[in-house]
């Protein structure tokens, strides 16, 4: 059995967002690039499953649609334990293009389970997993917080408003993962980093469809008015202000 984990290369979550002079682009100078947090957890879970599968799961492959600057991120995933990697050599414009290109690869290189994150922390598209499944005409399960194998059958939980559902779908499928899928991401060890250098990173040219949308400008959120401080001794005054001034209660 084979698992594919889709990796999005994103700025570190503490990055301060700046715009360039005419607000036509984000200023990415000095940004630290990392594996999208959800994808890191998806990979961690995939590796856990492989290790306890007694050989039933053969390989964990990671895939990124991105230009060569994404390779440090891919190498990190290999250092953490992925067996091999694919990079589709394209700087994607939108999720449609990403999903279509991953689908083009998967059509010729099938996997039993494909994992994506619920969203990339940069453009918050929340779309690649569902789009990929639709391009491949296979099931997708969204908001997955738990994935395990019961023998040969995968079992999932998805988070619905106010609760969870335990779900099964036939393979192959796309699981779109979120909080809960793994506790903490694995950190690469020295040995892993050494081994990662010898692992295969296949670079392929794009074979999917182009984009349907493009960013043409950016804006920063409106600056907040200064906070109004209330004396702790008269904290109860807050309730009056929330009613009379803010009108939210």
């Amino acid at each position: 059995m084979k698992i594919l984990v889709c990796l999005s290369n994103v700025p570190d979550t503490t990055t301060k967002i700046k715009l360039n002079g005419d607000q036509s682009a984000l200023d990415m100078t000095g940004v630290q690039w990392v594996i999208n947090p959800w994808d890191e957890l998806a990979l961690t879970r995939a590796l856990d499953l492989k290790e306890k599968s007694e050989g039933k799961i053969d390989t964990i492959t990671v895939i990124t649609v991105g230009e060569s600057l994404t390779e440090p991120t891919i190498r990190k995933a290999l250092a953490v334990g992925a067996d091999d990697a694919v990079r589709i050599n394209l700087n994607p414009t939108d999720d449609y293009e990403v999903a279509s290109n991953i689908a083009a690869w998967v059509k010729n290189n099938p996997y039993n389970i494909i994992l994506t994150g619920i969203e990339s922390s940069d453009y918050n598209g929340s779309a690649v997993g569902g789009m990929l499944a639709e391009f491949l005409k296979i099931p997708s399960v969204s908001s997955v917080s738990f994935l395990d194998m019961e023998g040969d059958k995968p079992l999932m939980k998805r988070e619905i408003p106010g609760g969870t559902e335990t779900i099964r779908v036939p393979m192959p499928f796309v699981a779109i993962v979120q909080k809960g899928i793994a506790l903490d991401p694995r950190i690469p060890a020295m040995r892993g980093i050494m081994m990662a250098r010898k692992k295969e990173l296949t670079v392929v040219e794009p074979a999917g469809e182009g984009s349907k949308s493009t960013y043409i400008g950016f804006a920063m959120p409106k600056a907040k008015a200064k906070v109004k401080m209330i004396d702790a001794e008269n904290a109860g005054q807050l309730i009056t202000l929330l009613h009379e001034e803010a009108k939210v209660i």
Partner: peptide, 13 residues
């Protein structure tokens, strides 16, 4: 975008 840290103007074609 960026979890509300910024807004993006997306043109859909």
């Amino acid at each position: 975008i960026f979890n509300g840290k910024a807004q993006g103007n997306l043109q859909i074609n």
